[in-house]
Protein backbone atom coordinates (compact mmCIF):
# COMPACT_ATOMS: atom_id res chain seq x y z
CA UNK A 1 0.00 0.00 0.00
CA UNK A 2 1.44 3.34 -1.07
CA UNK A 3 1.31 6.26 1.31
CA UNK A 4 0.38 9.09 -0.99
CA UNK A 5 -0.42 11.52 1.83
CA UNK A 6 1.90 13.57 3.91
CA UNK A 7 2.10 11.58 7.12
CA UNK A 8 0.89 14.29 9.47
CA UNK A 9 -2.69 14.03 8.21
CA UNK A 10 -4.84 11.28 9.73
CA UNK A 11 -7.81 11.64 7.44
CA UNK A 12 -9.07 13.96 4.76
CA UNK A 13 -12.30 14.63 2.92
CA UNK A 14 -12.60 15.63 -0.73
CA UNK A 15 -15.78 17.30 -2.04
CA UNK A 16 -17.82 15.32 0.43
CA UNK A 17 -21.61 15.51 0.07
CA UNK A 18 -23.94 13.62 2.42
CA UNK A 19 -27.49 13.04 1.23
CA UNK A 20 -30.66 11.93 2.96
CA UNK A 21 -32.75 10.89 0.00
CA UNK A 22 -32.58 13.86 -2.34
CA UNK A 23 -31.71 16.31 0.43
CA UNK A 24 -28.04 17.23 0.76
CA UNK A 25 -27.55 17.48 4.53
CA UNK A 26 -23.88 18.32 4.12
CA UNK A 27 -22.37 19.87 0.98
CA UNK A 28 -18.91 20.15 -0.43
CA UNK A 29 -16.64 19.52 2.51
CA UNK A 30 -12.94 19.37 1.79
CA UNK A 31 -10.63 19.31 4.77
CA UNK A 32 -7.53 17.63 6.11
CA UNK A 33 -7.39 16.53 9.72
CA UNK A 34 -3.97 16.61 11.29
CA UNK A 35 -2.64 13.62 13.18
CA UNK A 36 -2.58 13.68 16.99
CA UNK A 37 -4.40 16.94 17.16
CA UNK A 38 -7.89 17.81 18.32
CA UNK A 39 -10.14 19.14 15.61
CA UNK A 40 -13.42 20.71 16.71
CA UNK A 41 -16.48 21.04 14.52
CA UNK A 42 -18.71 23.89 15.67
CA UNK A 43 -21.81 25.58 14.37
CA UNK A 44 -25.48 26.21 15.14
CA UNK A 45 -28.01 23.42 15.67
CA UNK A 46 -29.03 21.50 12.58
CA UNK A 47 -26.04 22.53 10.50
CA UNK A 48 -24.94 18.94 9.91
CA UNK A 49 -22.08 18.72 12.46
CA UNK A 50 -23.09 15.29 13.71
CA UNK A 51 -23.90 14.07 10.22
CA UNK A 52 -20.41 15.02 9.07
CA UNK A 53 -18.83 13.38 12.12
CA UNK A 54 -20.78 10.16 11.60
CA UNK A 55 -19.66 10.05 7.99
CA UNK A 56 -16.10 9.45 9.19
CA UNK A 57 -16.89 6.01 10.61
CA UNK A 58 -19.85 5.24 8.35
CA UNK A 59 -22.47 5.40 11.09
CA UNK A 60 -24.79 7.06 8.58
CA UNK A 61 -25.00 3.71 6.82
CA UNK A 62 -27.81 2.83 9.26
CA UNK A 63 -30.03 5.61 7.95
CA UNK A 64 -31.75 3.75 5.10
CA UNK A 65 -31.96 6.58 2.57
CA UNK A 66 -28.52 8.09 3.15
CA UNK A 67 -25.60 8.07 0.75
CA UNK A 68 -22.36 9.89 0.18
CA UNK A 69 -20.58 11.39 -2.80
CA UNK A 70 -16.99 12.55 -2.83
CA UNK A 71 -14.28 10.86 -0.80
CA UNK A 72 -13.02 10.40 2.71
CA UNK A 73 -9.44 9.25 2.53
CA UNK A 74 -7.49 7.50 5.23
CA UNK A 75 -4.00 6.39 4.28
CA UNK A 76 -4.99 6.88 0.68
CA UNK A 77 -8.00 4.58 0.87
CA UNK A 78 -11.47 5.95 0.21
CA UNK A 79 -13.62 4.89 3.17
CA UNK A 80 -16.63 4.80 0.86
CA UNK A 81 -14.92 2.70 -1.79
CA UNK A 82 -16.68 -0.43 -2.94
CA UNK A 83 -14.11 -2.81 -1.46
CA UNK A 84 -14.17 -1.19 1.98
CA UNK A 85 -15.86 -3.00 4.86
CA UNK A 86 -17.56 -0.53 7.22
CA UNK A 87 -16.85 -2.87 10.14
CA UNK A 88 -13.12 -2.47 9.49
CA UNK A 89 -13.55 1.28 9.22
CA UNK A 90 -15.19 1.43 12.64
CA UNK A 91 -12.51 -0.81 14.02
CA UNK A 92 -10.01 1.93 13.14
CA UNK A 93 -12.17 4.96 13.89
CA UNK A 94 -13.82 4.78 17.29
CA UNK A 95 -16.65 6.93 18.52
CA UNK A 96 -17.89 8.42 21.77
CA UNK A 97 -21.53 9.49 21.76
CA UNK A 98 -23.48 12.42 23.12
CA UNK A 99 -25.17 10.42 25.84
CA UNK A 100 -23.07 7.81 27.63
CA UNK A 101 -24.14 4.43 26.26
CA UNK A 102 -22.33 1.71 28.17
CA UNK A 103 -23.45 -1.83 27.43
CA UNK A 104 -25.67 -3.54 30.01
CA UNK A 105 -22.69 -5.60 31.15
CA UNK A 106 -20.10 -5.32 33.88
CA UNK A 107 -17.49 -2.56 33.79
CA UNK A 108 -14.85 -5.13 32.92
CA UNK A 109 -16.87 -6.61 30.08
CA UNK A 110 -17.63 -3.16 28.69
CA UNK A 111 -13.92 -2.76 28.06
CA UNK A 112 -13.08 -6.31 27.10
CA UNK A 113 -15.97 -6.86 24.70
CA UNK A 114 -14.64 -4.77 21.81
CA UNK A 115 -11.19 -6.28 22.20
CA UNK A 116 -12.62 -9.78 22.26
CA UNK A 117 -14.70 -9.47 19.11
CA UNK A 118 -11.73 -7.91 17.33
CA UNK A 119 -9.57 -10.90 18.08
CA UNK A 120 -7.40 -9.54 20.89
CA UNK A 121 -4.89 -12.19 21.96
CA UNK A 122 -2.98 -10.54 24.81
CA UNK A 123 -3.56 -10.21 28.53
CA UNK A 124 -7.11 -8.98 28.91
CA UNK A 125 -6.79 -7.87 32.55
CA UNK A 126 -3.83 -5.75 31.58
CA UNK A 127 -5.69 -4.22 28.65
CA UNK A 128 -8.68 -3.39 30.82
CA UNK A 129 -6.51 -1.77 33.47
CA UNK A 130 -4.52 0.18 30.93
CA UNK A 131 -7.60 1.44 29.12
CA UNK A 132 -9.27 2.47 32.35
CA UNK A 133 -6.08 4.23 33.47
CA UNK A 134 -5.87 6.04 30.13
CA UNK A 135 -9.46 7.18 30.63
CA UNK A 136 -8.63 8.33 34.17
CA UNK A 137 -11.20 5.98 35.61
CA UNK A 138 -9.09 3.18 37.04
CA UNK A 139 -8.79 4.52 40.57
CA UNK A 140 -12.53 5.00 40.85
CA UNK A 141 -13.60 1.59 39.57
CA UNK A 142 -10.73 -0.79 40.21
CA UNK A 143 -12.72 -2.49 42.98
CA UNK A 144 -16.01 -2.50 41.07
CA UNK A 145 -14.94 -4.21 37.86
CA UNK A 146 -17.60 -6.90 38.18
CA UNK A 147 -20.37 -4.38 38.88
CA UNK A 148 -22.83 -3.29 36.20
CA UNK A 149 -21.72 -0.26 34.24
CA UNK A 150 -25.13 1.27 34.97
CA UNK A 151 -24.13 1.78 38.58
CA UNK A 152 -21.64 4.47 37.59
CA UNK A 153 -22.45 8.17 37.44
CA UNK A 154 -23.02 9.84 34.07
CA UNK A 155 -19.51 11.30 33.96
CA UNK A 156 -17.97 7.97 34.90
CA UNK A 157 -20.08 6.20 32.29
CA UNK A 158 -18.82 8.56 29.63
CA UNK A 159 -15.22 7.98 30.63
CA UNK A 160 -15.96 4.25 30.52
CA UNK A 161 -17.18 4.71 26.96
CA UNK A 162 -13.93 6.50 26.17
CA UNK A 163 -11.99 3.69 27.83
CA UNK A 164 -13.74 1.00 25.81
CA UNK A 165 -12.95 2.95 22.66
CA UNK A 166 -9.28 3.24 23.60
CA UNK A 167 -9.19 -0.48 24.37
CA UNK A 168 -9.44 -1.43 20.71
CA UNK A 169 -6.69 1.09 19.88
CA UNK A 170 -8.21 2.94 16.97
CA UNK A 171 -6.37 5.56 14.94
CA UNK A 172 -8.98 8.22 15.32
CA UNK A 173 -11.58 8.91 18.02
CA UNK A 174 -14.76 10.73 17.06
CA UNK A 175 -16.59 12.53 19.86
CA UNK A 176 -20.16 13.73 19.38
CA UNK A 177 -20.76 16.40 22.04
CA UNK A 178 -19.29 14.03 24.63
CA UNK A 179 -19.85 16.37 27.55
CA UNK A 180 -23.22 17.87 26.73
CA UNK A 181 -25.10 15.52 29.06
CA UNK A 182 -22.65 16.02 31.93
CA UNK A 183 -22.21 18.43 34.80
CA UNK A 184 -19.40 21.05 34.69
CA UNK A 185 -16.97 19.06 36.84
CA UNK A 186 -17.36 15.91 34.75
CA UNK A 187 -17.02 18.06 31.64
CA UNK A 188 -13.73 19.41 32.89
CA UNK A 189 -12.40 15.91 33.52
CA UNK A 190 -13.34 14.82 29.99
CA UNK A 191 -11.56 17.87 28.57
CA UNK A 192 -8.41 17.13 30.58
CA UNK A 193 -8.62 13.56 29.38
CA UNK A 194 -8.76 14.69 25.76
CA UNK A 195 -5.52 16.61 26.18
CA UNK A 196 -3.96 13.44 27.51
CA UNK A 197 -5.39 11.30 24.70
CA UNK A 198 -4.21 13.44 21.83
CA UNK A 199 -0.67 12.26 22.54
CA UNK A 200 -1.69 8.92 21.02
CA UNK A 201 -4.84 9.57 19.04
CA UNK A 202 -6.33 11.92 16.53
CA UNK A 203 -9.54 13.37 17.92
CA UNK A 204 -12.43 14.96 16.08
CA UNK A 205 -15.03 16.50 18.36
CA UNK A 206 -18.40 18.01 17.63
CA UNK A 207 -19.42 20.59 20.19
CA UNK A 208 -22.12 23.09 20.81
CA UNK A 209 -20.05 24.87 23.31
CA UNK A 210 -17.67 27.45 21.82
CA UNK A 211 -15.69 27.91 25.00
CA UNK A 212 -15.06 24.18 24.96
CA UNK A 213 -13.86 24.31 21.37
CA UNK A 214 -11.61 27.22 22.22
CA UNK A 215 -10.24 25.45 25.30
CA UNK A 216 -9.51 22.00 23.92
CA UNK A 217 -9.02 22.08 20.17
CA UNK A 218 -6.07 22.79 17.92
CA UNK A 219 -8.14 23.22 14.79
CA UNK A 220 -11.72 24.35 14.37
CA UNK A 221 -14.11 23.84 11.51
CA UNK A 222 -17.01 26.29 11.40
CA UNK A 223 -20.19 24.92 9.85
CA UNK A 224 -23.27 26.81 8.73
CA UNK A 225 -26.32 26.06 6.61
CA UNK A 226 -26.77 27.72 3.23
CA UNK A 227 -30.01 28.87 1.60
CA UNK A 228 -30.92 25.30 0.70
CA UNK A 229 -30.66 24.29 4.38
CA UNK A 230 -27.62 22.26 3.46
CA UNK A 231 -24.69 22.38 5.87
CA UNK A 232 -21.16 23.21 4.84
CA UNK A 233 -17.80 24.11 6.36
CA UNK A 234 -17.45 27.86 5.85
CA UNK A 235 -14.11 28.22 7.57
CA UNK A 236 -11.47 25.77 8.76
CA UNK A 237 -8.31 26.98 10.47
CA UNK A 238 -6.23 26.93 13.60
CA UNK A 239 -8.53 27.39 16.59
CA UNK A 240 -6.70 30.50 17.66
CA UNK A 241 -7.26 32.08 14.27
CA UNK A 242 -10.95 31.18 14.21
CA UNK A 243 -11.56 32.75 17.58
CA UNK A 244 -9.38 35.84 17.18
CA UNK A 245 -9.16 36.76 13.52
CA UNK A 246 -11.89 34.89 11.64
CA UNK A 247 -11.96 35.57 7.92
CA UNK A 248 -15.66 35.00 7.48
CA UNK A 249 -18.11 37.51 8.91
CA UNK A 250 -20.56 34.74 9.85
CA UNK A 251 -17.87 32.97 11.87
CA UNK A 252 -17.11 36.17 13.69
CA UNK A 253 -20.76 36.74 14.48
CA UNK A 254 -21.09 33.20 15.73
CA UNK A 255 -17.97 33.01 17.93
CA UNK A 256 -18.67 36.39 19.46
CA UNK A 257 -22.22 35.36 20.26
CA UNK A 258 -23.94 37.77 17.93
CA UNK A 259 -25.52 34.93 16.04
CA UNK A 260 -28.69 32.94 16.78
Amino acid sequence: MQNTQTPEYAIETKSLFIFYGSFAAVSEVTMKIEKQKITAIIGPSGCGKSTLLRAFNRMNDFVPSSYVTGEILMQGQNLYGKEIDPVEVRRKIGMVFQKPNPFPKSIYENISWGAKINGFKGNMDELVEQSLRSAALWDEVKDLLKKSAYELSGGQQQRLCIARTIAIQPEIILMDEPASALDPISTLRIEELMQELKKNYTIIIVTHNMQQAARVSDYTAMMMIDDNRSGGVIEFDKTQTIFTRPKDKRTEDYVTGRFG
Binding site: F62, V87, R90, R91, F97, N101, G114, I117, I168
Partner: peptide, 15 residues
Protein backbone atom coordinates in the same frame (compact mmCIF):
# COMPACT_ATOMS: atom_id res chain seq x y z
CA UNK B 1 -33.52 -1.48 23.23
CA UNK B 2 -32.33 2.07 22.55
CA UNK B 3 -30.53 2.82 19.30
CA UNK B 4 -27.66 4.37 21.21
CA UNK B 5 -26.68 0.94 22.47
CA UNK B 6 -26.56 -0.54 18.99
CA UNK B 7 -24.56 2.44 17.74
CA UNK B 8 -22.14 2.00 20.62
CA UNK B 9 -21.53 -1.56 19.54
CA UNK B 10 -21.18 -0.72 15.86
CA UNK B 11 -18.72 2.02 16.72
CA UNK B 12 -16.50 -0.62 18.35
CA UNK B 13 -16.25 -2.43 15.06
CA UNK B 14 -18.89 -5.04 15.86
CA UNK B 15 -20.74 -6.75 13.05
Amino acid sequence: VPRALREGAYAMGAT
